[in-house]
Design a protein around this nucleic acid. Structure first.
Lengths: 145, 145
DNA sequence: ATAATATCCGAGTAAAAGAGTCGGAATTGA
DNA sequence: TCAATTCCGACTCTTTTACTCGGATATTAT
């Protein structure tokens, strides 16, 4: 059970964007350098963020990406869900209706309780961490140095 | 981020074992029938459980598997960790020292906070569900029918 | 105009992981 | 002995992951 690079790199890219895009758009080249991720791969990740409406793009020279809203308003869950297909380790216990896995019967599905709780705890966790919190953390760290 | 069939089927197999092994050993053939998982695959899963010391085997005719301890004492976390390699979606934030992923630097690792919290919440969740709880749930359900 | 930066987009691909199967050996009870 | 079992390693097919690549389009600076 691993989070893919889409989620891992993608969140890092988003945070980078949040940190540096206040004054002007941030290009993928810059993110690539700072985060050590290739531009071509970043394109894919950021495209997902854009499709989900989390970031906006500005094309052409001096272009780049900016956040659609103030950084503080994004939860990590929102960002990760835009990147990964879904944040549920076990489909059959997903909150929404797309249960692809066929359950043999309630009797055999004691495990379902477990999957539901896992799904729930992950989503609770990521929905309650906000990008703003992380940035504050960052500012505190900067001051100490 | 999906839990593999090892974890999913494996926990189901373990619960099946917990339900039916009180009087006599349970053979993989029986689990296979009830849980609709092939015997050959079950062999792999149960082997992991055995290696971890969670179940004991009795070879030969009328043989099978039994729990090493009373069902109530097993946490779901323990079982899942025996089946899956580890229950940490992001390695670099694992609690133990095996951080395989190279972090560029603390400054770029605001995301690390997120991974740590996710890892923590999953482990808290599964460590606090006990197989005994699930069996009780099961008994309650049986009575209602 | 032209060059230099950018985003945008679809395809393609190599490696790794996932999900099993299979054949046969060893053990034990009837 | 035979049937039911666990035990074990190797093998294979499929899917997913993690990218790269080529080129199109848009915008700005010179």
């Amino acid at each position: 059970m691993k989070l893919s690079t889409k989620g891992r790199y993608g969140l890092r890219a988003f945070i980078d964007l949040a940190v540096y895009s206040e004054s002007k758009p941030v290009s993928l080249t810059m993110i690539a350098k700072r985060q050590n991720i290739s531009v071509s791969y970043l394109e894919q990740l950021v495209a997902k963020l854009k499709r989900a409406g989390l970031v906006e793009s500005i094309r052409g020279a001096n272009g780049g990406y900016i956040l659609s809203r103030p950084a503080s308003e994004y939860s990590v869950g929102e960002v990760l869900r835009a990147l990964e297909e879904e944040l549920v380790p076990v489909d059959c216990a997903a909150i929404n209706g797309k249960s692809s896995e066929h359950c043999v019967g309630s009797k055999n599905c004691l495990s379902r309780i477990v999957w539901e709780r896992i799904n729930e705890s992950i989503n609770n966790t990521v929905n309650n961490i906000f990008i703003g919190d992380l940035l504050e953390e960052n500012r505190r760290n900067q001051k100490e140095e």
